[in-house]
């Protein structure tokens, strides 16, 4: 794994400079003390120009090295929330801090060193004529030397299983493969926080397995992984924390077991628990079961 110079709470402060077009530079102070580490949202409200209120008072804290799945139906505010975590959107009221940095005072470019964001639609993101160049664009822009860029590209491509596609043109690839390229191009920036907006959309069974492995490896590398997902099986099996949004508010926040044991609240978010939990609920089990073994054990069938 590449050393970012930032490892968990160990580093007290790291300064990173991002060159701007006007020649001035902008500095992100990264205070890694226990009080400020992680992402903190304080009563965040966001209203889109035109008056649609997408977030209505969200307060939560995501600690370093957490794996968080954000669930909820389309229009619940998931993507709007995620875009606040890297400063792409700034709250209309309330505040967002990433490792103590208030996003309101930072450009998105400055935040990009801390938080990587993979768009839902890879075609919003991809623009190079070769997969290698596409994945290398981020680390190059961060000013890394060529050998480090190459190492990061290979590492990221390997994590999502597209090592064999580095010479190809992104738009010759199928949508699901382009999505993996988009993910690798953000992972290659080696940011401590990685946000994936609907990574499993359009993925087949092997693709979803690869993404599950990616989440586990990023977690093992000390990163914080936040994924927006509609795939409850994926959320339940591969994330330690699940946050359910409905109508711009957090309605549930806890472990998969805690969240998926509340079918009534989930129905408000138009979400159905994973299949094992639904089977358990149909059979009148009190406890929430999320995998086959747990279900059979709870039914006394093991």
């Amino acid at each position: 794994m590449q050393a970012t110079g930032i490892k968990g709470t160990a580093a007290k402060t790291t300064a990173a400079a991002t060159a701007r077009a006007d020649g001035k530079s902008e500095t992100v102070e990264r205070a890694g003390s226990l009080d400020t580490a992680g992402i903190i949202l304080e009563d965040v409200c966001y209203e889109y120009p035109g008056g649609v209120a997408a977030l209505k008072g969200i307060s939560l804290r995501i600690s370093q090295n957490e794996t968080v799945a954000i669930i909820g139906e389309n229009g619940a505010g998931k993507t709007t929330l995620a875009k606040h975590l890297n400063g792409l959107l700034k709250p209309t009221s309330g505040r967002v801090f990433v490792d103590g940095v208030d996003t309101r005072g930072r450009t998105c470019a400055a935040m990009a060193r801390l938080v990587g964001f993979v768009f839902q639609n890879p075609d919003d993101q991809l623009f190079q004529n070769q997969v290698f160049k596409e994945i290398a664009f981020g680390p190059r822009n961060l000013g890394y030397p060529a050998d480090k860029v190459e190492r990061l590209v290979k590492w990221a491509a390997g994590l999502v299983g597209i090592e064999g596609l580095l010479e190809r043109h992104p738009f010759d690839l199928a949508l699901a493969q382009r999505k993996l390229v988009a993910i690798a191009s953000v992972v290659a920036m080696d940011t401590p926080y990685v946000i994936l907006d609907e990574p499993t959309t359009g993925q087949d069974y092997p693709g979803t397995q690869k993404l599950a492995t990616l989440v586990a490896k990023l977690h093992a590398a000390g990163k914080t992984v936040i994924a927006i997902t509609h795939d409850m099986e994926f959320a339940a099996a591969h994330f330690a924390r699940v946050i359910a949004l409905a109508g711009g508010r957090v309605i549930l926040d806890g472990t998969p077991n805690e969240v998926f044991s509340r079918p009534d609240e989930l129905a408000m978010a138009s979400v159905e628990p994973p299949q094992m939990a639904r089977l358990g609920q149909r059979l009148g089990l009190e406890e929430c079961v999320l995998d086959q073994e747990a279900l059979l054990r709870a039914l006394g069938l093991v």
């Binding site: 994973p274 089977l279 279900l295």
Partner: peptide
């Protein structure tokens, strides 16, 4: 699964039985 298709979990449970 070897052909790249995941079985619905509820079918896997009954197969386990």
């Amino acid at each position: 699964e070897a052909h790249g298709v995941g079985r619905p979990p509820f079918m896997s449970v009954v197969r386990a039985l």
